[in-house]
């Protein structure tokens, strides 16, 4: 059986909000490594990888590896019924085709349980190749989301280029062009406001803004975002979830025909 008690229940709500538009159905895997998910978006352009480590849970009990297939829209509907401050517990009995979400208010005066049907999902485990990235950019997640949103009102794709100058986000559309350059900036009051650029060699990749905008829905999970870029490889857009793990999006670039 499985029982996972997460005091910061709001975090699971945010996780679902950040992936439910990208992925319809996915297997949540529960093992000694943690509560994880790996899924490809329906248009096969992006992969989501989530890990919530056992240490982040007040109670983390699963006596064997369990994979639970869930429709993420339905799961999001259920989690929307939990308050942002609620404690969320997931429970599943061995061999059961349902999972129960229990929501407790912080003062313990309201307890709700929602039972959701599980589904069978055949999904291949993907092998993520080890890569040395040409450039790694860490920046405030809100700034990255703002840039993607702004550029998507001008064009459909974004070219992300890292040079000695900084990281450049460019787009082009019927009404004109737009360029936003962020330079390395570590002279900030708080570390999460810094922009840090590690460049081994210059890199320039093109991505669909629709996907970029979709994955910036993870912004509430972390103050910072890390972009790892290499020519001809998917970008890795990572939001670290404080003390618990991460949500990573692998986004395929557009390639020359």
């Amino acid at each position: 059986m499985l029982e996972l008690r997460l005091v910061q229940g709001g975090l699971l709500k945010k996780v679902l909000e950040s992936i439910k538009d990208l992925v319809n159905d996915a297997n949540f895997d529960c093992s000694a490594t943690g509560f994880s998910l790996q899924a490809m978006d329906s248009s096969q352009v992006a992969v989501v990888a989530l890990l919530l480590r056992p240490e982040g849970f007040e109670r983390y009990w699963c006596d064997r590896n369990i994979s639970m297939g869930m429709n993420l829209n339905n799961m999001a509907k259920m989690l929307k019924c939990a308050g942002n401050d609620d404690i969320i517990t997931l429970k599943a009995e061995d061999g059961s085709d349902t999972v129960t979400f229990m929501f407790e208010s912080p003062t313990q005066d309201k307890i709700a349980d929602f039972e959701m049907k599980l589904m069978d999902i055949n999904s291949e485990r993907l092998g993520f190749p080890e890569a040395d990235y040409h450039a790694i950019v860490r920046m405030p997640s809100s700034e990255f989301a703002r840039i993607c949103k702004d550029l998507s009102s001008i064009g459909n794709t974004v070219v992300i280029s890292v040079t000695k100058e900084g990281v450049r986000f460019s787009t082009r559309g019927d009404i004109g062009t737009a360029n936003v350059v962020c330079r390395q900036n570590t002279a900030v009051d708080k570390p999460e406001e810094a922009t840090i650029i590690e460049m081994n060699e210059p890199v320039s990749l093109t991505f669909g803004l629709r996907y970029m905008n979709s994955l910036t829905k993870a912004t509430p999970l972390s103050n910072t975002v890390t972009l790892s870029l290499s020519s001809g490889l998917p970008a890795v857009v990572e939001y670290r979830i404080a003390e618990m793990g991460y949500i990573r999006f692998y986004l395929a670039p557009k390639i020359e025909e």
């Binding site: 352009v45 993907l126 395929a252 025909e257």
Partner: peptide, 14 residues
């Protein structure tokens, strides 16, 4: 001309 790559081409299924 750039076309959208499918993500699977980058990952070996394991």
């Amino acid at each position: 001309l750039k076309s959208q790559a499918r993500i699977a081409r980058f990952f070996q299924a394991s």
